[in-house]
Design a protein around this nucleic acid. Structure first.
Length: 520
RNA sequence: GGCCCCAUCGUCUAGUGGCCGAGGACACCACCCUCUCAAGGUGGAGACACGGGUUCGAAUCCCGUUGGGGCUGCCA
């Protein structure tokens, strides 16, 4: 391979959580770096003082680590590199590329209100203001040439031209003395010898500014090759708007909490804006690395479809060896103190609606807000029982979070009976009491050491015979009485694991409840 | 408003001038399997935004229209 080693950077600004759009950008950078045997750099863009909470950086790091995309270099923090920006600004100032401006936003708006083209009007261009006014500094603007165009060469979009007339003299340093994003971005990309800038399409309009800054810096100091640009299509919601943190479920952490697997999540993300050769969409990460082509990235925005992600995740879940599945479920069913626990909280970036989509009605995870603790007392969790049930659950869930609602009846003292299920299978089924009675009697006559799935099936069939029902109809009231829901893992295995006496106890409890609430 | 980007089934996409009477996946519908629910299997419905060109031939190239989006901050 000839040419300079590939160096790419993922440069998020900390916001308190990891945005799925950021994750997609990071992934594409990471895939490209791995494929080119290049370097993947993490740079925290925290030039804005409001955005430099250390725990937010840790959040980014842990989310990236979960997705197996840890950086090769960094995190670098722009807040710790201000001397570099200062040097660049001084050079630019000395070269005559900048000028000081003391206009307030209100001033500019007042002057340009009636203009055809809003934006800064160049008011201070020729005023020759000093960069400081007494002991306060002034904002510094970049002098955009009046004529000509700046062409951005983009691997994905080709050449994009920006007439200088449409570009205002943009601010490069705030009046506080702090550098702005465009400046810091360019200075860092030069300093870090970035070869490819892969980022969201929303940054395309600022790219000509970056190019002009880059070329100006080349003129006042050592020249650095301009990186190749690649602007990825936006990720949008159903309204085709850029994903927003207010309304859309954008926090990667919340997907982890719900039990999506990192491999599945990355696989899905890779499908947004790009597709692997062939018909297969479920492709291992190594294939992603081998086949990914920046120039093949799609141009149009993509809708982040949780349903498709959920389906893909289900495929990954089912493919897990059972022991791995059991281990992966631990944080949800039997959290280990000190280790990571899912935070199930409806407020996490508005994911409340997602569980309903992902889960099956009646099986969707129960109300667990603000805590990742399972709904049963820790001491009632039985490792062996869970392991025995695991294969049956594994093929019925799409996310690990759904597991809780599938096995809770095994560990709860008296599982709540879902109202709709009770009505459907028992209250509004006139023959259900006969089934319950027969089940109590027939199950009670099964010797405890013969209490196994096949024997239970035979017993249930005989319940059906005495009550004139097919097996599928006979099992319904029993299932609801014992597990609390009309749907769940196979019944006979469930009853076997629960034990004969406990099953009979719950059947009798249900029978009493019917008697209490009067004849159906 | 200005600048810029974009446009194939509801969604994600394949398609780079003839292999396309447009392929796959999710979702949807039906059937099969079945102790519930899933999973799995089979089948079905479903798209080249519109109008002009170029060409023997266009989903693919060009222009326009329409529609959508992004940016337009001393945020990033």
């Amino acid at each position: 391979m000839v040419g300079p080693a590939v160096r790419v950077r993922f440069a998020p600004s900390p916001t308190g959580y990891f945005h799925v759009g950021s994750a997609r950008t990071a992934l594409f950078n990471w895939l490209f770096a791995r494929q080119q045997e290049g370097v993947f750099i993490l740079r925290i863009e925290d030039t804005d003082a409001e955005r430099n909470r250390e725990e937010w950086v840790e959040g980014i790091l842990s989310a990236m680590s979960w997705l197996n995309m840890s950086p090769d270099e960094g995190p670098y923090r722009q807040s710790e590199r201000s001397h570099l920006y200062r040097e660049a600004v001084d050079a630019l100032w000395d070269g005559g590329y900048l000028y000081a401006c003391d206009c307030s936003r209100a001033d500019v708006e007042e002057r340009t209100a009636t203009n055809a083209t809003p934006g800064y009007d160049g008011h201070c261009r020729e005023r020759g203001l000093s960069p400081t006014d007494g002991d306060t500094s002034r904002a510094l603007r970049f002098r955009v040439p009046d004529d000509g165009v700046t062409v951005v060469r983009d691997v994905i979009r080709g050449e994009v031209s920006f007439p200088h007339r449409s570009l205002e003299d943009f601010v490069v340093v705030k009046s506080s003395g702090q550098p702005l994003f465009v400046l810091a971005n360019v200075v860092d990309d030069r300093d870090m010898a970035i070869t490819h800038v892969i980022r969201g399409e929303d940054l395309l309009p600022t790219t000509p500014k970056a190019v002009m800054l880059w070329q100006s810096l080349d003129a006042v100091g050592p020249a650095v090759p301009l990186p190749t640009f690649a602007h990825l299509p936006m990720l949008v919601n159903e309204q085709r708007k850029k994903l927003s943190k207010r309304r859309d479920p954008v926090a990667v952490e919340s997907y982890r909490d719900q039990g999506y697997l990192p491999e599945a999540f990355c696989n899905y993300l890779a499908l947004l804006g790009w597709s692997p050769p062939g018909d297969a969409e479920k492709v291992p990460v190594q294939v992603l690395v081998d086949e990914f082509r920046l120039e093949d990235v799609h141009h149009a925005p993509a809708f982040f479809d949780v349903r498709k992600l959920t389906h893909l995740n289900g495929e990954y879940v089912r493919e897990l060896p059972v022991t791995d599945f059991v281990a992966a479920c631990r944080p949800w069913v039997s959290p280990v103190p000190g280790e990571w626990v899912p935070a199930i909280d409806a407020d996490v970036a508005g994911v409340a609606g997602v569980a309903g989509v992902a889960g099956v009605a009646g099986v969707a995870s129960p109300e667990r807000t603000g805590t990742g603790a399972p709904p049963w007392p820790a001491e009632r969790f039985d490792e062996e029982v869970f392991e025995a049930m695991a294969p049956l659950v594994q093929e019925r869930v799409s996310t690990l979070g759904e597991v809780v609602g599938m096995v809770d009846f095994l560990f709860l003292v008296d599982p709540d009976i879902d109202d709709a299920s009770w009505d459907k299978a028992i209250a509004r089924d006139p023959g259900s009491t006969a089934v319950l009675d027969a089940a109590v009697s027939v199950y009670g006559s099964v010797p405890p050491d013969g209490w196994a799935p096949e024997r239970i099936r035979a017993a249930t069939e005989s319940v059906g015979e005495t009550t004139g029902r097919k097996l599928s109809k006979a099992q319904a009231p029993i299932r609801v009485a014992v597990t609390g829901r009309t749907v769940g893992p196979p019944l006979f295995e469930s009853l076997a694991l629960l034990g004969r006496d406990e099953v009979v106890r719950r059947l009798e409890a249900a029978r009493r409840r019917v008697a209490l609430s009067g004849p159906p």
